[in-house]
Design a protein around this nucleic acid. Structure first.
Lengths: 192, 192
DNA sequence: CAGTGCATGTAATGAGTTACATGATTTA
DNA sequence: TAAATCATGTAACTCATTACATGCACTG
């Protein structure tokens, strides 16, 4: 039940917004942290309203509803922040595949890891771009958002290094892989 | 649809097993990578059977069914490994809370981060214990499992360091966190 | 023969995804 | 006035969690 609190929190920070605004804010500021689809968000906003945690402050042009967090909503957010222990859901599709790479040939396995590394390089570039043109609304969101952004950078760097290490380990295990023309990975124009 | 492939992959590596065996194997070897509940697994095994990717090789004592992966199942696993691009689902309850820590007092915020760091230390200890007494069945699972284990260690170490850095940043922002003074007019030196 | 572990299943509920549907307003 | 954007919603489906239910077989 965290999408609920993600929405609640963002609404507090934004000091009121429509579902549409919120959705964009999700994409911009929280891509690294939490994902939400449009239909999920609209549904949750209605449930939050029904539960009295938010309310429609005003209605605008195209059926637009401007939501505002109620006192009960703020209390709920605070409660969730401090009293509900966050749980780790560990589900990583790349790691899962890694587990079973023994089922394909060493070349194919190495190719897989190289592809993942290349994809990560691309995402690292995107993060760099993103970093420039974020306009964090308020000061708190800016401060804590920056900490989360730093996390993202560290995470990707760690992961990139680990991919490199994995390739070394694989090469050591299967030494003839070394002389081999590069397949389709690792010729991504690297940014920055 | 990845639980399906996690089960399929493990079944291949284990060279046949019951749902019960599989469930334990999930817990032991893949805690860091993929989670499955009992009811989900049994359901998926039946679906895999219906789809012809596994079959009941023999039946044992207490209604026990020994499953075995079919050729179609191996092909499906291979296809998933190499042709289906893994997708990143980014959902981290701790990071999400961090985003909104501006909603509570600096003391409470710092307390939250410290708690998370402590919890991580505990898990790091557990990982160390685990590392000793894993008996990886076959050679492939052992090799790739070790790579995944190294990932886990690097991940936690990175995260631990980041928590430390976060606490420093918070202390720098709110220097009087330990001894609170009544008068708080306007400090908050803007940084960066 | 009682307790533990083995072994599988179902039902209810909630969370998340994809696709479709609809219409108002702004802007070029 | 056509296209783009704003804006919300619903339906169908899959995936995941929790709780409950049942019973056999071994072990002490």
């Amino acid at each position: 039940m965290s999408l609920r609190h993600a929405a609640l929190g963002l609404l507090v920070e934004m000091d009121g917004a429509s579902g549409y605004d919120l959705l964009k804010m999700f994409e911009i500021t929280m891509g690294n942290v939490w994902q939400a689809t449009q239909s999920q968000l609209y549904g949750e906003l209605n449930k939050l309203t029904a539960d009295g945690f938010i309310e429609v402050a005003s209605e605008g042009p195209r059926g637009r509803k401007e939501y505002r967090v109620t006192e009960a909503g703020r209390a709920e957010l605070r409660h969730w922040l401090l009293d509900v222990p966050p749980k780790f859901v560990r589900r990583d599709e790349v790691l899962l595949r890694l587990f079973f790479l023994g089922q394909v040939s060493p070349d194919e396995a190495a190719g897989f890891v190289r592809d993942q590394a290349a994809a990560l390089d691309r995402r690292l570039g995107e993060l760099g771009e993103l970093e420039g043109n974020i306009d964090w609304g308020d000061e708190n969101l800016s401060f804590y958002g920056r900490l989360a952004m730093e996390y993202g950078k560290r995470f990707m760097a760690m992961r990139r290094e680990w991919y490199g290490w994995v390739l070394e380990e694989m090469a050591e295990r299967e030494p003839k892989m070394a002389e081999r023309e590069p397949k389709m990975a690792e010729r991504e124009p690297k940014k920055d």
